[in-house]
Design a protein around this nucleic acid. Structure first.
Lengths: 193, 193, 193, 193
DNA sequence: TATGAATGAGCATTCATTCAT
DNA sequence: TATGAATGAATGCTCATTCAT
């Protein structure tokens, strides 16, 4: 009889958003942004198309929310990989990256897909620029502590390497030699001396 | 008035296809696959939509032809960069790559866009796999001659680096430090005493 | 906590309806019927969409209530303009009409908009017919007292004139010569020797 | 085998546009702009929704074309009503107007409907302003020749009268005394000694 | 070989209306 | 009485594709 309390509503809202975001993530990661229709997302989420627009004003907003969530997760991960020892941290990062490539190739697919849409989806650009600089900075710090002369150059190289490997693995899938690359990189960067 | 000879017809066919492919290339490279309509391509090519469907059964087929042509061009380029001196060849390749990134960023955009798009099509995967192996092989040969111990690993690394730099430069555009990267890579790989 | 008395409930009901009608009036007068959503009305009225449907079963019902209220207001106005002197009354009416056109053009917009909208609904037609006859009758009475021969014809003419001026002023807004028209009509109808 | 000639295509195009415009006119005149969907128009015209967009880029463009056609027709009519004798011309105009109101009430409905949309459909405004001034000018000329002192004022009055009668007749339909109004106006304006 | 009129499924988005609470 | 989450049909519009000529 009496209306739902604000707290109850908030809970319901969060649950619905969660369902929608999860469905959107999987579909966009699998098929790309343009090939994923609002109808598909709603269907997979088990809600009506209309409800989706209760939470996200435009299709683009869905992507923004997706990106934000993905980046937040990435940050948490990265922080957990930190170690007092620079070499150990670097190794953790390499291992984490290759594990991700194996277990969650979707994540990378989403990022790549959206990145290409930058010209059309303006939100994406800001995210990408900030994140890239953040990763390069972090890597530079590690390499400096490891005694690299041109730590910035090598940091940029490694970050680009991640992107390149991600891209190639995305396309070649099982044909890409993830194991060999991982071993080679760890040997090269973490076994100094 | 008089019927065309088979030879003339063939010539016409090739010319039409050429026009269509060039138009498609420019439009897709600039705006992406989904944002480029068949109508736009036909208009830019100066042919009718109907004619376009005479040569390519589906929009996807056009894309496949585009990819093949682009990769063929890449081969021709690569062969021209060869030099008896391994170090000089490597430098040529680096310089060519960075020049391309500066002058024809669209090319890379097209390759990335299309690769993601038809990543399900096995033809593309096999194509990409072959190309990647070819590039890695070539690079491995160069690095072996330059005395690298694990030439294969380093070759894979460099090829992935190309992809990664291409990807990042595509996103960051003017914000990406192409010059610094080029200098750093040449110093690192081509100045070995 | 304690249950509301029936009288209190009735009071609350009336207050809510009043809020809703006022909000609907302003929004529809400004933006038109189709461009005004139930959500907008509920928001402006400070009530929930659900409550709105407690009082009005359909959007159309809201409109009907609006029309009735507007016409009731018109009646009250008209009565206040009456004067023992027919010429003075006529002048009052002209002046009131032009003042309304200047200060509340939205009112007219609403009436015109809604009249066209539900022109199929017989209720509205009967309503409008009654009103028109009432106005014509009143005007005929005035003109008879002023000595017009065909008072009925001239009364119909003047009432149609009001509608026509209202319509044109609605469209031309600042471009419509309200002042000249007012002066001309008063001179023509109220300065008779 | 050989493609259609440009002339053939033009003919086909004109026929299709004609069908679409006719359907749009009838539906919009009957139900109003917002209540007439593109789908309804296409269905009534017997063409696909897609084809409609081959000829009109937006729904608004359809209205523009409709207005233009209606106004062109109106102009032709008016010119035919002209007579060397001002009084005869005026009578012709009155008679034509009332005949139209009886036989083609849709025309008026369309104009009224669209006029109210002026704020949203910008095209309409220009048309309305120009046309109104044109009609007032024409009427002023006639009345001047008939010896009216304030011909401009009376011209404005008559034009507004047309609009007012049109509006009221639109709503009251058969209940509006078109015959009496016609007789009264002709007596009043055209029987001057 | 070549044209472009025509199709229709599909898309993002809106909104009146319902209903569990 | 009151809420707002949820629905789903409808809308304007796009576009790959077909086909008569």
């Amino acid at each position: 009889m009496s209306p739902r309390t604000p707290a109850q509503n908030e809970e319901i809202r969060l649950a619905s958003q969660e369902k929608i975001l999860r469905a959107a993530f999987e579909l966009i990661a699998q098929n790309g942004y343009e090939s994923t229709s609002i109808a598909m997302i709603a269907k997979k989420a088990g809600v009506s198309k209309g409800l989706l627009y209760n939470y996200f004003d435009k299709k683009e907003d869905l992507v923004r929310a997706l990106l934000e969530a993905a980046m937040r997760e990435g940050d948490v991960m990265l922080r957990e990989l930190m170690d007092d020892d620079a070499s150990a941290t670097l190794k953790n990062i390499f291992q984490w990256f290759f594990r991700e490539m194996r277990e969650q190739p979707h994540h990378w697919r989403l990022m790549a897909e959206l990145s290409l849409k930058i010209d059309n989806l303006n939100i994406v650009r800001k995210f990408a620029l900030g994140k890239l600089n953040e990763y390069v900075g972090l890597m530079e710090n590690l390499l400096t502590r490891l005694g690299y002369e041109n730590a910035l150059g090598e940091a940029r190289l490694i970050v680009a390497l991640f992107d390149g490997i991600g891209f190639e693995a995305l396309i070649l899938k099982k044909d890409y030699p993830l194991d060999e690359m991982e071993a080679y990189l760890i040997t090269k960067y973490c076994q100094e001396k």
